[in-house]
Design a protein around this nucleic acid. Structure first.
Lengths: 230, 230
DNA sequence: CGAAGTCTTGAATCGAATCAACGGAAGTGG
DNA sequence: CCACTTCCGTTGATTCGATTCAAGACTTCG
């Protein structure tokens, strides 16, 4: 097996501020996993015995309830740490992580977490910050679900995805991974029908251009007015 | 100022496993705050320069959005750490904490956090776990808001409050702090009207007994059937 | 005792889900 | 490479749960 190069993880916030030796040490405990489109990194309720860092691609994390209802918890971008059940004291993964495009990740056994935190305390601090940011986001989502109507929530979700994964094109900002109406519905607590109608209406007004699993934002400020967060 | 006794914080999970000397050291940096019913521990968007541990009483944390919509983020119980903006990298408090009964808390300046984490690493680990549990709860709430109807959500909220703050009485399990219809509505993303109708219907079926800011669960299993999480 | 806060209940309305049918694009296999 | 199937999206019609509007009763407290 070939050595992994430190440049792989130098951009990851969790490992920010560590020197080359530390990065080497951290990498020496990792393995790489390829995930083809549709493959799972882990499944909900499975024993959480490994954690991951996404190097390339995009993953969707979903969570199911007893009656079969499903929500999209989040989309994982490169340099995001995920599946850290151990660090937060969860025995099993709270959701299912699916590759939405061909992806590449690093994996560590859970035992490495304790060692890493002990050897490099900044890792725990960074993990705490990133967890805090996720808690904030999730609380914001509860607020949105409780106080905004469907159109406002969809606008907010599209804007935040465009900010997270936008790529400039001649048409506007393209959300740079395949995103279905169903995905957007599960992200905003509505149905694919309502999402479809909403996007059609926006397209008629020139706010977005959208197609099969593709959305391009043409008029961000216009969407912000709809989202009504300021 | 009189010395604070270690027994005050011995029950707090964040400080679990520390010896008497450590607890003394930690307490020596703290001050106590009394909060009368209705007082605020901190206000949303205020600079987060202190963090707290609740010793006695109950606090409600709420969060407002731009249009004046409000949700209850959580209720804080004794031994809970709260207002830890600093640890999670937030410059300001993300919500407002109000005492719902006369309460007593310990306060530390933010600067103490860095020192504590450095001197007692288990504090960071415990904080990570408790933050993880809160993230889980909040994600569960997103799932509930997205997939359950109002009656199911209210049932779930009542059951979880009874589990968190229940006291056995001859009538059943009383939620042991003042909880208005409005509070429950802001916790479940509905209106006080719908909560009132729902509780009235449940009372007619013998599932609960409720009155002004009081709810007693008479038939927990009955509510669990309604909540439908199993 | 008056005033503010909390709760209840009826009636009307409305936003979004559901039901239903179809069109088109992408992937699969012979 | 074409036929078939599956997946994804659109749009209309209908229904329904929950909000909104409205009025009044009860409780607590200064």
């Amino acid at each position: 097996m070939s050595r992994l190069h430190p440049s792989l993880i130098i951009g990851a916030p969790v490992f920010a501020g560590l020197d080359a030796g530390a990065l080497d040490d951290i990498l020496s405990r990792a393995q790489t996993v390829r995930l083809s489109k549709g493959d799972l990194a882990f499944r909900q309720d499975q024993r959480a015995d490994r954690f991951f860092l996404l190097l390339h691609g995009r993953l969707r994390v979903t969570r199911l309830n007893a009656e079969g209802g499903q929500v999209v918890v989040r989309f994982i971008a490169p340099n995001d740490l995920f599946g850290v059940g151990m660090a937060i004291g969860a025995a099993t993964y709270p959701g299912t992580a699916t590759a939405v495009v061909d992806s590449l990740a690093l994996v560590w056994p859970n035992s490495a977490w304790t060692d890493l935190v002990a050897a490099y305390p900044s890792v725990a601090v960074e993990a705490l910050q990133s967890l805090g940011a996720r808690l904030q986001d999730t609380q914001e989502r509860v607020l949105d679900l409780s106080t905004l109507n469907v159109e406002q929530r969809i606008a907010g979700a599209v804007l935040s995805l465009a900010a997270q994964a936008g790529r400039a094109t001649e048409d506007g900002t393209l959300i740079d991974f395949p995103l279905s109406r169903q995905d957007l519905a599960e992200l905003t607590g509505t149905t694919l029908h309502t999402v479809s109608r909403t996007l059609s209406a926006w397209e008629a007004k020139g706010l977005v251009v959208s197609g099969r699993r593709r959305i391009t934002v043409r008029d961000g400020p216009g969407l912000e007015v709809i989202a009504g967060k300021n």
